[in-house]
């Protein structure tokens, strides 16, 4: 792989991961911890929303993140032709 191509691949890689980690932070530390008291005023089915994020929601978001990460990274590898045969 050429130097420029490698750099572009790495930049795209970092950008992708940063995006996912922002969501990761917002759903766990944000909704589940820092904003929990505010969100607890909102009712979500039988839950207080903040409590739901801390004990259920964050985990669902994590799962969605990992799946999206696997898909987009595998696509990225193919686009830059660095995937294993």
């Amino acid at each position: 792989m050429k130097e420029a191509n490698a750099k572009a691949y790495w930049a795209a890689n970092i950008k992708l991961i940063m995006g996912y980690l922002v969501v990761w932070f917002v759903v766990s530390y944000g909704c589940g911890i820092l904003l929990v008291d505010v969100l607890n005023n909102i009712h979500f089915f039988g839950f207080k929303l903040g409590f739901w994020f801390a004990q259920q929601g964050a985990i669902y978001f994590f799962l969605a993140l990992i799946i999206m990460y696997a898909r987009s990274m595998n696509k990225l590898d193919e686009r830059f032709d660095v995937h294993e045969q």
Binding site: L21, G32, I59, F62, I66, Y69
Partner: peptide, 18 residues
């Protein structure tokens, strides 16, 4: 006890991505 739920699963996300 939410710290265990979020901490252990969230840590797994770090492991799998980073």
């Amino acid at each position: 006890a939410s710290v265990y739920l979020m901490g252990w699963t969230g840590g797994y996300v770090l492991l799998a991505m980073l």
